[in-house]
Design a protein around this nucleic acid. Structure first.
Lengths: 169, 169
DNA sequence: TTCATATTGTTATGGTATAACTCTGCGATA
DNA sequence: TATCGCAGAGTTATACCATAACAATATGAA
């Protein structure tokens, strides 16, 4: 199980730096082109641990790059998703960075309805239970979308405290 | 576990009739108003076991009801979802009927990528595994979105056979 | 250098969903 | 019976999400 919710000590600058370094490294080894645009979109998605919407990315890109348009961001997101650097949260139509990028892996997402933070699990017990029960119905499993809504540890405990910023979660 | 994939003998007219009768009955007992519009939208969603998109419903409504517009269908869908008569498939932005309506229950969906049929599971083993593993991370679970992509039993076995109609699946 | 191809730019459009205000019909109540 | 309040539905407008299609450009291999 990986990438749980961040604590108060979370150093997001280091977190972001590591994520970009991992991506660079993986692309180098696989012969993928992490272009300036793709790298920048990945960086923007990783600006926090909340899902980011495509048009928010686009708004930011427009400030930096003339002629940015929806395909600009969707194509970058397609690349990043295909190689496991980001995931789409289907129930939010939004995107989060992946801390453990492997090609086209699934993962399970815990989504805090209060602070909006998302944690990713890659829990084999969940994956296998879903696979086993689905195949018991004669279904052949090719992919799983698992998104769990609720409250992250901090928001469950202090539901009235002010929302901390992004980077502290 | 309920509502598996339909067999060749599936009598969809009876299936649809039962679904509408159940909805009528539940609304009667709960004091809910299954209006003409809501009943018709439910009927259209139940036209098959494939997810139906909101604007497809709208196109059909326009042929029957002057002034049908997006809110017409979304408001009906909101009512039907809230009371468990239909579910939204998040990964498809589409809606399916529910054979076992209970308020705001979750459910797990098996989605055939070939014939597009959807089967609903309400498997406590899946629900509990996801809940337990999420809460092991300190997360408080309020809802689950579980959508499994793959091949239904028939499409897995005869991937080259022509697609059967709707009602036979 | 030249070429094939991947990437990005550009314009347009399609698909999904809600806001906000109006109108209508129906039951509760004075 | 009058009228009030409200849920449901009509109506108009707009916001948000995503892709098609074609042009231009950059990149790396031969």
């Amino acid at each position: 199980m990986i990438a749980p919710f961040r604590t108060e000590r979370h150093d997001h600058e280091a977190c972001l730096r590591d994520a970009l370094a991992r991506a660079e490294d993986i692309c180098l080894h696989k012969g993928l082109r992490l272009t300036e645009l793709r790298r920048r979109v990945l960086e923007l998605v990783w600006s926090g641990h909340e899902p980011v919407r495509a048009y928010d990315l686009l708004d930011q890109l427009r400030g930096e790059r003339r002629g940015a348009a929806p395909p600009t961001v969707y194509r970058a997101l397609d690349f990043l998703q295909e190689h496991g650097f980001v995931h789409k949260i289907e129930s939010l139509n939004a995107y989060v960075g992946c801390a453990e990028p492997t090609d086209r892996h699934g993962g399970q997402f815990l989504i805090c309805g209060r602070c909006k933070a998302v944690a990713e699990l890659d829990d084999p017990a969940i994956y296998e239970t879903v696979r086993r029960r689905a195949e018991a119905s004669g279904f052949t499993v090719q992919g799983q979308v698992i998104e769990v809504m609720g409250l992250c540890p901090r928001c469950a405990v202090t539901p009235d405290a002010p929302l901390a910023h992004n980077h502290e979660h």
